[in-house]
Design a binder for these strands. Sequence first.
DNA 1: TTAATTTGTTAGTCATAGCTAACTTTTTTA
DNA 2: TAAAAAAGTTAGCTATGACTAACAAATTAA
Lengths: 228, 228
Amino acid sequence: MTNKLNLNNLTKSEEDYLKAIFQLLIEDASVKVGNNQLADYLKVSPASTNNMIKKLKAKGYVVSEKYGKLDLTEGGKSVAVRLIRKHRLWETFLCNYLNFTWDEVHDVAEQLEHIKSRKLIDELDRFMDFPKKDPHGEMIPNANGEYSIVPKITLSSLSEGDVCQLVAVNDGSVHFLKYVSEIGLALSSEIKILEVREFDKSIRIKFDNTIETVTRKFADNVFVNKVV
Amino acid sequence: MTNKLNLNNLTKSEEDYLKAIFQLLIEDASVKVGNNQLADYLKVSPASTNNMIKKLKAKGYVVSEKYGKLDLTEGGKSVAVRLIRKHRLWETFLCNYLNFTWDEVHDVAEQLEHIKSRKLIDELDRFMDFPKKDPHGEMIPNANGEYSIVPKITLSSLSEGDVCQLVAVNDGSVHFLKYVSEIGLALSSEIKILEVREFDKSIRIKFDNTIETVTRKFADNVFVNKVV
DNA sequence: TTAATTTGTTAGTCATAGCTAACTTTTTTA
DNA sequence: TAAAAAAGTTAGCTATGACTAACAAATTAA
């Protein structure tokens, strides 16, 4: 093993960039990540990302050729996964012990994930008895950075008559999360697709004796397990 | 009330400076705080503190005249007390729930105290059932920033034959904290002063059937309640 | 296949927060 | 009370990580 003993001497910004690249890479595994795309995602200028990418390349976390697309080294991935582990463990703690709701956790976890202490996060993990999933249904990497990537299918990919179980929601938008909980959907909710309307791809669903119509955009952000 | 609704738009550095000034002010209430003293305490150059003080004066947190000593406004004190509340609540959490020891908590709490979320800290407080003291015996300010300042007497101020109870330890040094727990002293330990040696002011103490000799410097950092 | 558009890069600026070196004011003490 | 020491201030530098504006390369479309 090339155990370089990552001292994690990274700034908050450097960490944010690595995590962002990682998430863009897995979100759309087919397409490589570009500089402008990253700038967009992080809501900074392309000049800023270009600058930071140079630094991260020099430090050995990122690889790319001039005018080429970005990729992470093993070291870069490892930093990103550890951040995701911290983020998801904190979200779990906030929801399960401190009465936070889905839509409240993200901003605070975004701060907490940058706290540097191996013991802190491993003890938090132990305290909660090593949870496997965060409150949005996403897998939590273990202390060695290992985690199973469950192939995610969206509610929008199903057809009339299908029955599924909610396994995760995209936690990228506070408005979306609020909406999901307001209509009464929760993890493990069993959802039946009543109708998919050709006109606008809106979907009529039934869960817990509630019938709702949701938009295609909404259904794209809901991840499910097909049951029937 | 002049409730300016403190948006807490302060950087980590600004917060650190305000907390440092507050602590220097109460640690030695008789003497006002000077620029070089602050620089020393924060381990930065006097030029840096001078610069920051200017900014904090402009923002209305600090008052001082040119070449004069420093003081905090009500706003400045309020920021500092909130930081101390956060610091002590996190220390309590780390010790009581995450298996941290006295000497391990400080660095991590120093990071955690800068997390910005009113809900986070108030919920953490509730989760622990509103603790009154941190693991070192220091009072924890409540959600309104109120806390009783218990007049602290040091072990070194007692005389032969006195009996006291350990109520707090100065948490400024990791080495000291390690030492305290290694010899077996803990909060509430009952300590009897057997002998105060004139030569070097070292003190022979007895607690839990242990007899130890401690230096004057050590005894200066141990705070007690006189029992007999 | 050339022109237009998108994407990536560079140069130069700004704010924050540190630094050293030089200087001024205040305090101490000889 | 004058000289020395200590304390406070200022000027000018550095690095980080943003930014805009201008430009170059690559991709897409006519």
